[in-house]
Computed example of a mutant assay.
Amino acid sequence: MTDDILSPPGEPNEPRVAQTGRARSLFRTTVQTLLENKLAVAGLGLIVFFLLFCFLGPVFYHTDQIATNLADANQPPSATHPLGTDDVGYDELGRLMVGGQGSLEIGVAAAIIATVFGTLWGAIAGYVGGFLDSAMMRVVDTLLAIPTLFLLLILSSIFTATVGLLIVVVSFAAWLTPARLVRGETLSLRTREYVQAVKMMGGTNSRAVLRHIMPNAIGTIVVNATFQVADAILLVAALSYLGLGIAPPHADWGNMLSNGTDFVQNGYWWMILPPGVAIMLVVIGFNFLGDALRDVFEVRLRRR
């Protein structure tokens, strides 16, 4: 029994109790490291706040974000409209909530799609190697050579912007970075003993990639995913600012910011400041969380 417990990780005779103990220890280390990082706590707090604000806020603060009301246009902040109204009478606070839903949905969905596809692409290219690796990475290099914003402008100008289309367009440009990162990790991981053992035991390439390569590159994948969300939100805001975002009456923070710039010279600061601050705080929150997760997945922290 003692020999079983002390057997190396991954051996067939390793008891489930030992595996569970290591998993709990790793989880406790992860939570402890995050709680020790004040910026991580602040970032997570910002993310949770805006998720509740955007998706739960409209339940308690009811506004009409479909029908225009020109009689209430350009009203400054008041008891009736805490953040004022825009040029067609939409309540700015309510629109900030609804617009945040679109920005967060597009950002998170695009980041997930880009991370999953980029991870698979990079893992396959790095594991197989040879001609396939060269061909797949030349595709990545070619797309990286095209300026991201220029590529997004072309795609957005060809198709009518919707939430689904923006998710596809942003993820199309975002998968390149995780593909390169995971490919680099895979080149190192494929020479490890446990991956070589899979080959010698007759395991398939798909099993080696899905069961051994990708799980051991999870640190790089998760950290990059948090930054992908922040980048996607900024890209959506940039497209909307250039007039290629979601068409009204739907909203996102980018087109709110774009609309506000037309009136900022008139002193209507409430039309540009709230969406600008919201974009900045959400991006900062995801960046803080990404920096903390990068520390968590450092080998020296997992072994302390």
Rank of each mutant, 00 (worst) to 15 (best):
D3N: 11
H250S: 15
Y241Q: 07
L93G: 04
R183A: 06
I5E: 13
A208V: 08
I213A: 08
Q228G: 13
M256H: 10
F55H: 02
V139R: 11
I106L: 01
A114T: 06
E36Q: 14
A71Q: 09
D141V: 05
N287A: 10
S206N: 15
G245N: 02
T33R: 14
V209W: 08
G290S: 12
E105H: 03
P15C: 01
F131K: 14
V98Q: 11
V283N: 06
T2R: 14
Q265E: 14
S188K: 15
A145I: 10
A238I: 07
V98I: 11
A23K: 08
M271Y: 06
L244R: 11
L52I: 09
V139M: 14
L257P: 01
D252G: 03
M280C: 02
A123N: 08
E185P: 07
Q101M: 03
F159W: 15
D87E: 11
E185M: 12
G107N: 01
H250P: 03
V108Q: 04
F172C: 15
N69H: 09
E193Q: 13
S188H: 13
A238Y: 03
R24H: 03
F117M: 12
I47K: 02
I221G: 02
L70I: 15
T63Q: 05
W253G: 03
P8M: 06
Q196C: 05
A109H: 00
N74G: 05
I284R: 04
M256C: 13
L273H: 08
H81R: 09
G219L: 13
L210K: 14
V282T: 09
G118F: 08
